[in-house]
Design a protein around this nucleic acid. Sequence first.
DNA 1: CAGAATTCGAGGGCACCCTCGACTTAACCG
DNA 2: CGGTTAAGTCGAGGGTGCCCTCGAATTCTG
Lengths: 185, 185
Amino acid sequence: MVTASRPLRADAARNRSKLLAAAAALFAERGVDVPMEHIARRAEVSIGTLYKHFPTRENLMAAIFPERLAALDVIGEKALADPDPWHAFTVYLDDLYALQAEDLGLNDILARDLPDAPEVVSACHRGVGHAEILITRAIDAGVLRGDYSITDMATLTRAMAQVIRDSPAEWRRFLAIYVEGLRAP
Amino acid sequence: MVTASRPLRADAARNRSKLLAAAAALFAERGVDVPMEHIARRAEVSIGTLYKHFPTRENLMAAIFPERLAALDVIGEKALADPDPWHAFTVYLDDLYALQAEDLGLNDILARDLPDAPEVVSACHRGVGHAEILITRAIDAGVLRGDYSITDMATLTRAMAQVIRDSPAEWRRFLAIYVEGLRAP
DNA sequence: CAGAATTCGAGGGCACCCTCGACTTAACCG
DNA sequence: CGGTTAAGTCGAGGGTGCCCTCGAATTCTG
């Protein structure tokens, strides 16, 4: 499916990877809204070159986040392997928000309306799939409130994104309280 | 303390109140970051006139929010009058976030770093004072987790502000779960 | 009616977006 | 090799949206 066009010229390939590295770092540090100029500057490349390689911010995100989002699969698999449904569910949440806390870009991606990049969207959906199974399992085991849904988790994720952004030291405490509220009565 | 300068000219007084009405409406609808131009336009006044009356956004906020924040006192008093400490505490939270849900500007004020307007700051502190008493009472009665603090409530408020902003229909559900997590074990 | 107060909005400043044509350079070929 | 050329790089600059100022024009008030 890849339209194998001829390989990039050496300088172009070099610049492309400098751009990816710069964007990845800045997204993680500052969130996905960093000015394009900053990315170009950090990559030591002109703004025109940035746009040559990635005509839109979405392109850049599509090149960076699928790899990051793969971490969702890892923690999802790990949680699914846990035989205790409650433990699996809570550890999943903890792992998820730990990821977000380490990467403000990821935090943004998961909290906002998704970008128009199909690769990013599908990676997110995979993550959500795991979460849905974990929720179902925990409800069936009678340990999680029966009315909890993936929608509630999305809400929680946006709330958590906010907490992470402006008091990164407190998110675990906040989550702990929330999770306590989720136990089946 | 008011430097009773001579009264405003008739047209100036009229414009001032049109500006206040416009700003109050727009702050409530769109949050405190609405462009100054929009406020002037809604007030049918030029941008220069707006700045004549309110040289900074803070000035405008200081003229508008203290009145709104008085509602905090009302719900605080009401809650303090409630003999059941748990009920008082939870109703207070519900009332508080209901206020925020009705007024995005209030939502912003309570969620972010406060503006430099002393009047706004002191009104907020009064509100927080009530909350502190409610928390202490509920902890002493053994119904609220002993380690819950006003700081946690601030965190919750920022999280709730986020939830209110992007899914106004869901905040009560979110709060219910959270509150459930707050009961003393 | 004079003079002070108020109003108006064009416009300068800033930060960000993105484009485009002139310049540079890697890659390939005789 | 040196030459040719397509590919790539560069950054000035135009567009947008917001901030805020200031001098000319207007309008109250006594």
